[in-house]
Amino acid sequence: MDRVKIPDYTELTCTNLMIKLKIITKKMIQAEQVEFYSTREQFDNIKKPFSKNHYSLLGNKTEENKYHVIIKKN
């Protein structure tokens, strides 16, 4: 089965990525997760808000300025 392509959000500004993620994660149910590619600056920006209470966040550097990010709703 084809794996769903991971969206690349590296072109989004940090603010717009944050808004997009807030909209996506608000609709997620418990244990559901979202994954995407971000830049280092984007990853630094979302670390704090998505490390609180309801979410867990994981980021792996894949290229010089690219991170594979997974946000899971706890």
Binding site: K20, I23, P49
Partner: peptide, 15 residues
Amino acid sequence: IFNMQELIDGISDLE
């Protein structure tokens, strides 16, 4: 453009 209502709903749980 962002759906303003989705945006409002999305940020409503911020501490």
